[in-house]
Design a protein around this nucleic acid. Structure first.
Length: 437
DNA sequence: AACCCCCGCAACCGCCGCACC
DNA sequence: TGGTGCGGCGGTTGCGGGGGT
């Protein structure tokens, strides 16, 4: 059929725009708005192709464009998004407010791609280039040291040598991320004394979840927690560093649901205390001595881990999406069967009514009344926003996804990477006046 | 001071998807 | 149902500035 050229090249100017041309374009758009690009040049008195006008406006003249240096946060975000979205610059740009796809593309090509390559990471696959050039932890750190997420920090020594180790590392990372204080991370990283326990028990497919600490007698934890621990354990077949710590924490839990309904405070307390404790064990012991912790069931915490390990979305979300078509965009409030936040959402209608595109900005706007904190999470080509309300284990999931695959049903999350921005929420968090458990 | 080379980035180009007729 | 117009996207180009010699 053939297409007419977008503009007649005769007499049309090309190349750099002059200030005068910019002014004409700005003035016209301010008066008439965007659109009608084909006829715009003539109406605006510009000897330019309409496409050129659109591009000039979209990439340079638009008043809401943020220009200049990319922050480390932005860099990290671009890398994370590129790992899951590839060269879909416009999709990436939607997650970086006021940055244009062109600018991000340029920045990637001139800076980030190069930097990743220098650190031994293939900028296309985002994986180490060859076994002999596996990047060192130092190299990785130098790539984005200031904002390396907790799980990445933890995973540095091994850097995914095998799929099983990757899964294990991610689980540990998630644990570490939830127990964000750096001293806790250090404690986890340096704890070596339970390396064999879980792997040995995992082979038997049964794990003894009766645990004890020096401060507390051995006693069973909740059946729910036990089940989840077993679920975790079965999936971990190689040395695990943090089990001891985990057991210490869980030793404070019980099955007594009726006795411990108010649990936000213990969670919050734990975070607060563990930030100053010398180790996770110390923090856990500290918490174990409190009345609150002795009546608290940590199953929500464990279930949040379980959530990450579930391989079937249907098992995670009974109100969500089981499959999507390529390119589909959808949004929904995910009703995790384990998250008590479901009740919060239902009661307050905070998130369940929002709808929109995959723009994070819209999502944030929709949830701002809940004092939310968002974590971006990308699984393959799917993007989710997790909204943490207490920064620890209570969350709701608001899925806004654009899949580039035919379906994500049954997708395994083994190559997921995470980008965290903890500080604003943690520092500014105020306990909601809600009993959400 | 002049020349050269490299790099960053604005702009261009071709293609694609969607809406409309 | 297919042709057409339009906007958008991603790859690429080439200009201009800065640094090195």
């Amino acid at each position: 059929m053939g297409r007419t050229p977008c503009c007649n090249a005769d007499g049309l100017k090309k190349g750099a725009w002059t200030a005068d041309e910019d002014q004409k374009l700005i003035a016209y758009i301010q008066e008439h708005g965007e659109g009608g690009w084909r006829t715009l040049p003539q109406k605006a008195g510009l000897q330019r192709c309409g496409k050129s006008c659109r591009l000039r406006w979209a990439n340079y003249l638009r008043p809401d464009i943020k220009r200049g240096e990319f922050s480390t946060e932005e860099e990290q975000k671009i890398i994370q998004l590129h790992a899951s979205l590839g060269n879909r610059w416009s999709a990436i740009a939607r997650h970086l407010p006021n940055r244009t796809d062109n600018e991000i593309k340029n920045y990637w090509n001139t800076h980030l791609k190069k930097r990743l390559a220098e650190t031994g990471i293939d900028p296309v696959t985002h994986k180490p280039v060859g076994p002999s050039s596996t990047p060192t932890a130092t190299a990785i750190s130098s790539c984005s040291a200031a904002h390396m997420s907790p799980q990445s920090e933890l995973a540095q020594p091994t850097l995914r040598p095998a799929a099983s180790a990757s899964t294990q590392a991610q689980l540990l990372n998630r644990l570490a991320a939830k127990l964000a204080p750096s001293k806790c991370l250090q404690a986890i990283k340096t704890s070596q004394n339970l390396v064999q326990v879980l792997s040995t028990e995992a082979e038997k497919d049964v794990v003894d979840v009766s645990i004890s600490t020096p401060d507390m007698p051995k006693r069973p934890i909740s059946s729910t927690s036990a089940r989840l621990l077993n679920t975790m354990a079965r999936r971990l077949t190689t040395p695990l560093h943090c089990l001891n710590t985990l057991k210490s924490i869980l030793s404070g839990s019980s099955d007594d649901q009726s006795a411990g309904n108010k649990v936000i405070e213990p969670y919050h307390d734990f975070m607060h205390r563990s930030a100053s404790a010398s180790s996770l064990s110390e923090a856990a012991s500290d918490m174990s001595r409190s009345n609150a912790i002795s009546t608290h069931d940590f199953s929500p915490l464990m279930e949040s881990f379980d959530l990450d390990m579930l391989k079937d979305w249907n098992g995670v979300s009974d109100g969500g999406v089981s499959s999507t078509s390529m390119g589909d965009t959808y949004s929904s409030c995910w009703e995790s069967p384990v998250s008590p936040l479901n009740n919060f959402i239902k009661n307050n209608n905070a998130a369940s009514t929002f709808s929109g595109s995959e723009s994070i900005g819209e999502v944030n706007d929709a949830l701002i009344t809940a004092r939310t904190y968002d974590r971006e999470m990308t699984f393959g080509h799917t993007q989710y926003d997790y909204y943490f309300l207490d920064g620890f284990s209570n969350f709701c999931i608001n899925g806004v996804s654009s899949c580039s695959e035919d379906s994500h049903e049954g997708k395994v999350f083994e190559d997921a990477t995470y980008s965290w921005n903890n500080d604003p929420f943690i520092e500014n968090y105020q306990l909601p006046d809600l009993d959400i458990f």
